[in-house]
């Protein structure tokens, strides 16, 4: 599958100037640029005097613009909900498969950015909507999946539906039955808003999918936060996190595999957080088994 988010190639194609005309205009190229095969760092950019060459300066501006858009472009909730429809059969038994639309107490993005406390709480209408739902259901479920815009609407827009699809299908095939709550989509939310939602839905666990703070090279990172026994006031030490979920980072199917592992373990141990260790990844990070590298060999 072509990866529309791969930063390095698509962007440098857009802005890369002709090498000959660069040199003619006085740009000094760096022969060590070949080392970019070994790192995503912006090394060997060359220089005009001591300053950035035009193409590299614009490549940076583009990356920053994309990261800014990821923060500020609002989530297209209609299209997201279309994508999420029909994936989850809620345990409520009312037959609806449409996601529930919720909003935090942060009324807009500027408030959201300055008041993280407001992004952790549901507004009155959302609280009421959930309260009514719980009354009708009166039934405990095993898991509530909550999709939150967070700091990257782009991550949520692109990756939330395929991830939920992958995870829902894995849960359906699991040896244990997983009763799922109705899917929730939250605008202007932070991770901890899942605690309030999970509690109102009588969920034994909540999994929050949230857009992570965009990096210059990763405007579309999704974060997954698992909390057992969610209730307002839960601290971050009681959560497990899977980070950097995106096509150029942790692949969706791998993320789903890890999430399933954590969900099973949380259910078995009846807890989440620091006492629940992610051992799903047997490939412990180990680098460069060779004795040295080019600088010191």
């Amino acid at each position: 599958m072509a990866d529309p988010t791969d930063r390095s190639d698509s962007q440098s194609d857009v802005t890369k100037a002709d090498p000959a005309s660069r040199r003619e205009a006085g740009v000094v190229d760096n022969p060590w640029r070949a080392l970019r095969d070994f790192t995503d760092a912006r090394i060997g950019l060359g220089r005009a005097g001591v300053s950035l060459p035009t193409d590299e300066m614009l490549a940076f501006q583009l990356a920053h613009a994309q990261a800014r858009d990821a923060v500020h472009l609002p989530l297209d909730v209609d299209s997201l909900c279309d994508g999420l429809n029909d994936i989850v059969d809620s345990a409520g038994g009312d037959g609806t498969t449409e996601p529930l639309r919720l909003h935090s107490q942060a009324s807009d993005r500027i408030t959201y950015l300055q008041r993280p406390d407001l992004g952790r709480r549901l507004d009155d209408a959302s609280h009421k909507a959930l309260g009514d739902g719980a009354d009708a259901a009166q039934k405990t479920c095993d898991l509530a999946i909550v999709v939150v815009d967070g700091l990257s609407s782009r991550a949520v827009q692109a990756h939330a539906a395929p991830f939920v699809k992958a995870l829902a299908s894995a849960l359906a095939q699991d040896a244990e039955h997983w009763a799922l709550a109705r899917l929730c989509v939250v605008e202007q939310g932070r991770v901890a808003i899942g605690d309030e939602i999970g509690a109102l839905l009588n969920a034994r666990a909540v999994l929050v999918l949230i857009g992570e703070r965009p990096g210059l090279s990763s405007p579309d990172s999704l974060g997954l936060y698992l909390t057992w026994n969610p209730k307002p006031g839960t601290t971050d030490a009681l959560r497990n996190c899977i980070s950097n979920v995106r096509p150029a980072g942790l692949q969706l199917d791998e993320a789903s595999r890890r999430a399933l592992y954590l969900l099973r373990e949380a259910r078995r141990l009846e807890l989440s957080g620091v006492k629940l260790k992610d051992r799903s990844d047997s490939n412990v990070i180990e680098h460069d088994s060779e004795p040295g590298n080019f600088l010191i060999s």
């Binding site: 060590w32 790192t39 760092a41 090394i43 680098h287 590298n293 010191i296």
Partner: peptide, 14 residues
């Protein structure tokens, strides 16, 4: 991001 020593050395050289 992964403490890769060749990647680190490349940035040091730069």
């Amino acid at each position: 991001p992964t403490d890769d020593t060749t990647g680190i050395a490349a940035s040091i050289l730069d």
